[in-house]
Simulated assay, not measured.
Amino acid sequence: MRDIKTIGGQTIGGVAIREARPGERHALLALVARIDAESDFLLREPGERPFWGRDLAAFQALGNSTIFVAETVGSRPAELVGYLSAHGGRFRRNRGAVTLAVGVRRDWNGRGVATALFAAAECWARRTGAHRLELTVAESNGRALSLYDRLGFLDEGLMRDALRVNGAWRSERLMGKLIGAEHVPEWPDLTPDPIVDAPPPARIGRLEIRPALPADAAAYLAYDRAVRSETHFLMRSAAESLPDVAAARRFLAEQRIGDRAATLLAVVDGTIAGSLSLWTGAYARTAHEAGLGLAVRRDFWASGVGGRLIAAADLWVRARRLHRLSLWVFGHNGRARRFYAKHGFREEAVARRHSLIDGRLTDHVAMAKLYGAAP
């Protein structure tokens, strides 16, 4: 691992930038805890661990994810004074998009540490084949916004009330920087006439919306494979479907643990026609938000299945007194964007050239719906 001690010819006094070592996980977590306690602009409350904290070696073994640290040199013992996490997408279509999060100790602010961390991360990302860097930042964090602007990140939209901090809602800006794949074509923006575009309404029998059960594993596996083979509008491709019935059973069992996640099925005459997954934020500052993933078999498009699933999502969110329901949709999926807008979702941000599908890049559009829950 090569230490980076200069940025643009300027020496970063007394600090070297390198990738974190798995054996220093505890020291790194102590640094994260200190920085979280010093600032309320970050994702976590003091005492909450980052998701990669349980197994740093496994996180880095993904091949498109790592942690960089800023370490003092010339002093004994050496100290960690800043870090940057780089988390690549989990699936084939979004592996080239890397999400960044940075933190620097207060006593080292203003000394070029964050700039050096970003330079190291960008060099690493280019080597790994990433084409996009992205991050979120509180709209009130003017200092960070200025830094990211200087580093070449562009404002891609405002995500309303994304965090709850000190009893108040806080909105965040999505910022992105394109670093590769300049010659890869894009999917066209599909905006055909909604009447011509829609298939004839399907005639369906009895429609039931109910929670998925582990006993549904075999039917759910067949559904998952079928729905992913019918369209390229889902993030996981057909090749990334659940591998077998046992995996499907484990997945469905996990959805029934606690009250913070659920998978609902739309069942028509005994056949799974669609599914809805819901999950709440992993940290205290995002616990007011639920994420949504929805899919419907092609044979049941324009039959009301999607609308019934959205209605069930509304009930689930309101029952838990949540404030925000959010989702992501591919930019060239015009029908889905119109569908969600019809059901009260607003487009908030556009992650440019985010996902690679069949040799073309497409935007990833963030949409959200707010509810009346107080902070």
Score class of each variant (00 low, 15 high):
E186L: 14
L29D: 06
R132G: 03
L322D: 04
A61C: 11
V137R: 08
G129W: 06
A57E: 13
E19R: 15
D161N: 15
R18M: 08
L234G: 01
R95A: 11
R318I: 11
L190N: 12
P194L: 05
S65E: 08
G167D: 10
E347M: 09
D107Y: 05
K5S: 13
R44D: 03
R353V: 04
K177Y: 12
E24H: 13
D149Y: 02
D149P: 00
R210C: 07
L294C: 03
A114V: 07
P192A: 03
D149I: 00
A57W: 05
R126F: 02
A295K: 13
F345R: 00
C123L: 15
D299F: 03
L43A: 13
Q60R: 08
F339A: 03
S65K: 09
T128M: 14
I12C: 06
G53S: 15
V365S: 06
G293E: 15
A349L: 07
P199R: 07
D193V: 04
G293S: 14
F68T: 06
G258I: 01
A373I: 00
R150H: 09
A20T: 11
L43C: 08
R34I: 11
L178T: 13
V73D: 01
T271P: 01
K342A: 14
L145C: 12
T128R: 15
G372D: 12
H343S: 03
G103E: 06
L147G: 07
W52R: 04
D299M: 04
R127W: 11
E289G: 10
S241N: 03
R353K: 11
A78V: 07
G258A: 02
S355Q: 10
G304I: 05
A313E: 01
V98K: 09
T286A: 10
A37M: 06
L264V: 05
M235W: 09
L325V: 01
G307A: 06
G304R: 06
A101G: 14
A16T: 08
E24V: 09
A168M: 08
V268G: 01
E71F: 05
L117R: 04
Q60L: 08
T271W: 00
W316F: 00
F153V: 12
Y371A: 01
V196D: 15
V73S: 02
H332V: 09
A181P: 04
H232T: 14
D189Q: 13
V32N: 02
E134L: 12
A222M: 01
H183G: 11
D314I: 00
Y220V: 04
R44K: 14
E45L: 15
